[in-house]
Write a protein that binds this DNA or RNA. Sequence first.
DNA 1: TTTGTTTATTGCAATATTACGATATATATT
DNA 2: AATATATATCGTAATATTGCAATAAACAAA
Lengths: 107, 107
Amino acid sequence: MGISKSENFSERENEIAALLKALAHPARIAIVEYLLSVDSCICGDIVNHLPLAQPTVSQHLKELKNAEIIQGTIEGTAICYCINEKTLKKIQLYFGKLENKMKSKCC
Amino acid sequence: MGISKSENFSERENEIAALLKALAHPARIAIVEYLLSVDSCICGDIVNHLPLAQPTVSQHLKELKNAEIIQGTIEGTAICYCINEKTLKKIQLYFGKLENKMKSKCC
DNA sequence: TTTGTTTATTGCAATATTACGATATATATT
DNA sequence: AATATATATCGTAATATTGCAATAAACAAA
């Protein structure tokens, strides 16, 4: 993106926006759904499952890891990636709170 | 973003990614929360409430409108913006489904 | 220690996003 | 009609994202 004036928004607004941004790509959605659907979560499996080159997938994994949406543990040469449930639940809770504020007031 | 190979992902993955992308900016989060918190929803109020220039806010409103997260109705010279509850509920439902798939299987 | 395997990093081209001044448009008021 | 008000659009600079080839790094096995 261009210059984002994040310093003028609240920490809360920046935090939820950053979490959603980390998920806001079809490849990263696909990664999260894949990790939720399989037992194994070896990085190579994810690479094979996506229509993207290995470095590109690695980059998407890094973004998800930075946002704490996934986490990885080393297993010999491979890396086992999995969902960080805490973060996904935090996002779900956020939308739950939004729904509670809906009152169908105008338009 | 750069070239996004969206044609290689499912419609479902692209759709949810696009919805999240529309929300993935602190200004747009602030707009949604503001619309949920006030009764009035005149465009000018939103502009005054945000630390951004009017054309920038207008651009963010357009993105939210394109994603059908908000909708606007003309009221004389002004425009009344409000939340499209259906879309927010769709997002909430999505994260609810994700949570159902969590099984704490590895890592 | 050489070789193979797996994942991460670097560097770069193509494209998208963000922000805003200037300006246009559309409606209301006088 | 002229003016004021409210919002959208255009043009553009600055920066971010996406994707991948090439390469590095880290570890295992021979």
